[in-house]
C-alpha cells in the first residue's frame, strides 16, 4: 500500500516536472477516513497530497471529457475496473488516446465503508490500509487487524479484470484473479416467472429518486447531452411516477447493451441501493448468448455486437 503510494507520487511529480503532462488525475484524502476523492494536480509540489488507500474508488477517466479540451496531455491512474471504462470512452471516440498517459494500478479490491460501519468498526476510526494479507484499522491509540474479504465492495468480489487492460506504465505486479460467478443473481431472477420479476423491478424502480448519479458516473454514458436532459422533445417527464422511473431505467439499460463494462459504479453510487448490476448483467448475459461472448471494455477495437451485422446473427423474427 505504502509502496504504491510512493510510486504514485513519484510518477506524478516526474511527469509534471518534465512537462510530459500538464495535469495529473489522482485521488486526495478528505477529512474523514472513508473519503478519497478525485484530485486534480497541476504542480509538482502538490503531488504530496495524492493518496492511495482502500477507498480510492472513483474512476477518474470521465474527467478527461472536459480536461482534454484544455490540457495538452493528462496523466491519470486507473485501476482494473477504471481501465475498462476508459476503453469504453475510447471506443465511443470520446477521448484521444494520444493525449493520455495511463498509470495502471493492479487492484486487490477496495473497501466498502458501509460494510465497515455495519461491522461496528467505524467509531473513532482514522484510517484503513492493506498490510500483507490483512486489513489494518487504525484508531487514536489502537489498531485492529481483520480479514479483508468481508469488507470488499460487492463489485470487487466479482471483478474479472483487477489488472488494468490498458496502460502506458504498470505501477505494480499483477494480482491474482479469482472472481465469484457474476451472473448468479441474474440466474436467480430468471427463475421467477414474468409477473414476479416485473413486481421485483417495480419495487426496485419505485425507490429511484432520479438523481442520475448512476448515469453521471457511468463511463458508457458520455453523451454531450443525455436524452433524459433534453426538453425538445422531452423524452422523460418530470413527474415523480413509477412509469417515468421505469422508462429511464429501461432506456438506459438498452443504451448500455453491449457497452456496459460491468464496472459496477452505477450500483455503487446509487443512494437507494437499486441493484442496477443485475439489470446490466441480464443484458450482458443475453447478448453473450445471442451473439457470442463479448466483454465490453477489454478490446475497444473489436466491433460491439449491436452495431455489427453478421450474416449468421440469429433472426428468429425472419424464420417463419
Amino acid at each position: 500500500m505504502k509502496a504504491m503510494l510512493q510510486k504514485i507520487r513519484k510518477e506524478a511529480a516526474s511527469v509534471l516536472a518534465s512537462g510530459e503532462a500538464d495535469l495529473v488525475l489522482g485521488w486526495g484524502k478528505g477529512p474523514l477516513w472513508w473519503q478519497s476523492y478525485p484530485a486534480f494536480i497541476e504542480e509538482e509540489k502538490e503531488t504530496g497530497s495524492l493518496t492511495w488507500d482502500p477507498f480510492c474508488v472513483p474512476n477518474l477517466s470521465k474527467y478527461l471529457l472536459e480536461e482534454l479540451w484544455v490540457k495538452q496531455k493528462v496523466a491519470l491512474f486507473l485501476k482494473g475496473c477504471d481501465a475498462l471504462g476508459f476503453n469504453q470512452l475510447l471506443q465511443d471516440k470520446r477521448v484521444d488516446r494520444e493525449k493520455v498517459l495511463i498509470f495502471g494500478i493492479p487492484c486487490s479490491g477496495l473497501i466498502d465503508p458501509q460494510k465497515v460501519e455495519r461491522a461496528g468498526l467505524h467509531q473513532g476510526l482514522h484510517s484503513v490500509e492493506h498490510q500483507g494479507g490483512e486489513l489494518v484499522f487504525s484508531y487514536k491509540d489502537d489498531q485492529k487487524k481483520e480479514d479483508p474479504s468481508s469488507f470488499y465492495y460487492d463489485k470487487c468480489l466479482t471483478c474479472r479484470h483487477p489488472n488494468p487492460v490498458v496502460f502506458d506504465m504498470m505501477l505494480g505486479d499483477a494480482v491474482a484473479v479469482n472472481p465469484q460467478e457474476r451472473f448468479a443473481a441474474v440466474g436467480e431472477l430468471e427463475k421467477q416467472d414474468v409477473s414476479e420479476r416485473y413486481r421485483y423491478w417495480e419495487r426496485q424502480f419505485s425507490r429511484c429518486i432520479r438523481c442520475f448519479a448512476c448515469r453521471n458516473v457511468c463511463p458508457a454514458c458520455s453523451c454531450r447531452e443525455c436524452i433524459f436532459d433534453l426538453t425538445d422533445p422531452r423524452w422523460l417527464g418530470k413527474a415523480n411516477v413509477l412509469s417515468e422511473n421505469q422508462f429511464y431505467h429501461i432506456t438506459r439499460a438498452f443504451h448500455m447493451a453491449g457497452r456496459c463494462v460491468d464496472c459496477g459504479e452505477c450500483a455503487r453510487v446509487c443512494p437507494v441501493d437499486i441493484p442496477l448490476t443485475s439489470l446490466n448483467r441480464k443484458l450482458i448475459k443475453d447478448l453473450n448468448e445471442l451473439y457470442g461472448e463479448y466483454d465490453a471494455g477489454v478490446e475497444p477495437e473489436k466491433e460491439p455486437p449491436l452495431i455489427t451485422f453478421n450474416p449468421g446473427d440469429p433472426a428468429a423474427f425472419l424464420e417463419s
Binding site: 465511443d92 471516440k93 453523451c223 454531450r224 447531452e225 466491433e303 452495431i307 451485422f309
Partner: peptide, 13 residues
C-alpha cells in the same frame, strides 16, 4: 451536430 458525440455507432448500421 450539437447533440452528436461522434461515436459513429450509426455508421456501421
Amino acid at each position: 451536430e450539437s447533440l452528436c458525440t461522434g461515436c459513429l455507432a450509426c455508421l456501421p448500421v
